[in-house]
């Protein structure tokens, strides 16, 4: 397909503006993290540090058990992501490609659960976690979100847009439902798996509310919790540049993960290739 020069210029121009607007606050965050507390960083002329320093990073490392919290975050986000992507795509496949009694009712129930704000039921949820022995345990953050309504909903919508013929062919060849999912459906939906994996990983990594509720020692805290409780003291004795250093450390792995997961996003070939 030939593309007109003007189209290309317009597309690149729009994307450039989009990139600037998107990256600018993050750039500001990194720049602020390199400034000594004595340097102003609020004004328009304060984006570039005059006297860059890594002292703020050293300070965060003193305040927060960084390595340990990092490992916790990796476990919660990594394991959580893998389990979620598997269970959500499996259930999404079931809802998209099979007829079974109660299917619509169950699916509407699933949608309805998305409408309930979980914050209201914190006290019994805590009692349940306690009964399971999961207070101050990373399982409390991984298991409840192992299969989410929103993830299943997304996978169902995504998978339903694929024609069922390829599955039928495999079924005639004698493949079972799970094998069809594993060998035929999964490869076709890699863009969706990659997208959902990124979103699931980031959501778990950045979550602050539930870890703060269920985790009870700083060794068990995730990185985001440790960083987020820094600026709360009266008088804010943790200077902002130190906090910005903390958030920079916390965000950097996300950017890496996102870059890696993009290798699975191949454009435009998915269905065409299968059909062909």
């Amino acid at each position: 397909m030939k593309t007109a020069r003007t189209t290309r210029i317009t597309v690149y121009g729009l994307l450039l503006i989009w990139c600037l607007v998107s990256a600018f606050p993050l750039f500001w965050m990194v720049s602020a993290s390199l400034k000594p507390p004595s340097e102003s960083f609020a004004g328009i002329n304060a984006f570039i540090p005059q006297d860059p320093t890594f002292a703020n990073y050293a300070r965060v490392a003193q305040l927060v058990p960084m390595a340990r919290n990092f490992v916790n975050s990796v476990i919660v986000a990594g394991v959580g992501m893998a389990v979620t992507v598997f269970l959500c795509s499996l259930a999404g496949y079931a809802f998209a490609k099979f007829d079974f009694p109660g299917k619509n009712a169950l699916f509407l129930l699933l949608l309805a659960t998305m409408m309930v704000p979980p914050e209201a039921g914190v006290v019994p949820l805590f009692a349940i976690m306690r009964a399971l022995g999961w207070i101050n345990n990373l399982l409390a953050l991984i298991v409840p979100n192992a299969a989410t309504a929103i993830g299943i909903f997304y996978m169902r919508q995504y998978i339903s847009s694929f024609p069922s013929e390829i599955m039928e062919q495999a079924r005639i060849d004698g493949a079972g439902d799970f094998r069809i999912y594993w060998q035929i459906v999964l490869p076709v939906i890699t863009p969706a798996l990659a997208a959902w994996a990124s979103l699931a990983f980031i959501a778990r990594w950045n979550d602050f509310f539930w870890p703060l509720l269920f985790l009870r020692s700083k060794e068990m805290y995730t990185l985001m919790v440790s960083i987020s409780v820094l600026p709360v003291s009266e008088g804010l004795s943790t200077p902002w540049p130190v906090i910005m250093a903390g958030t920079t450390i916390a965000v950097a792995p996300l950017v890496v993960i996102y870059l890696v997961l993009q290798s699975f996003q191949r454009e435009g070939l998915a269905l065409g290739a299968v059909k062909g």
Binding site: P36, P37, S38, E234, G235, L236, S237, T238, P239, W240
Partner: peptide, 12 residues
Amino acid sequence: FWDEFLRKNLPD
């Protein structure tokens, strides 16, 4: 508490 606030954030 302003003592800490000033010392930490306005060391200059």
